[in-house]
């Protein structure tokens, strides 16, 4: 498929805001698999993620960057969708390892989700099983460049093509209901 040249539609304020967003990414790591093991070394003194302005955040509301670290079962996909929809725009998704690209070693299991980007808009994949911290930091700097150029527009694609994503989610999960037990 040829790459389509996109026209930069952002205003001046959006460009400034994107500069800020790229330099202060708070991440939420959804630890579904072995990818979570690679994150502590990239946070702590060996690779020190904080010098790029990144840090772990406790809840989806506060986070900008969503790391899906490993393979997804249908059960965890439901939680991943809830979590993604709780995050505030603009939000970015990184898929870790080959599990999120093509299902990894569990590709033929009845309960495994093989391609993440049919359900959520993924901005960047890190290939590998599992990627080393060097690869992770490389991906983060790449994502920062993409945000600055306005290419990391997964959250816009999700809003525009919501029907399509919703259809795929419903086909795999049966139903997606968010219970709000405090405000009903």
């Amino acid at each position: 498929m040829d790459k389509i040249e996109k026209i930069d539609e952002r205003g001046v304020w959006e460009k400034i805001a994107d500069q800020l967003r790229s330099r202060s990414m708070w991440m939420l790591h959804y630890c579904t698999g072995c990818g979570a093991v690679e994150l502590p070394p990239s946070m702590t003194s060996r690779f020190d993620m904080e010098r790029l302005g990144m840090g772990p955040m406790a809840t989806p509301r506060q986070a900008d960057l969503f790391l899906v670290t490993g393979y997804l079962s249908t059960k965890t996909l439901r939680r991943v969708i809830y979590t993604y929809e709780k995050m505030a725009d603009p939000k970015y998704v990184i898929g870790f390892g080959s599990c999120t690209i093509n299902g990894g070693i569990y590709y033929d299991s009845y309960s495994t989700i093989n391609r993440l980007d049919q359900y959520l808009p993924v901005d960047l994949y890190i290939a590998g099983c599992m990627p080393r911290p060097e690869a992770i930091l490389n991906a983060f700097t790449k994502l920062m460049d993409m945000i600055r150029k306005g290419e990391a527009d997964g959250w816009k694609r999700y809003n525009e093509n919501y029907e399509w994503y919703k259809q795929n989610q419903l086909r795999s999960l049966g139903e997606v209901v968010v219970y709000d037990e405090f405000h009903e």
Binding site: A17, L20, T44, R51, G53, A88
Partner: peptide, 25 residues
């Protein structure tokens, strides 16, 4: 960060964090 033997963020990181949060929806 230095106590934990890391390099640490820039000194103006908190300004970036603050204005970034104000720019989100």
């Amino acid at each position: 960060a230095r106590v934990q033997r890391r390099y640490g963020p820039r000194w103006y990181q908190n300004f970036i964090d603050l204005f970034k949060t104000l720019s989100k929806h």
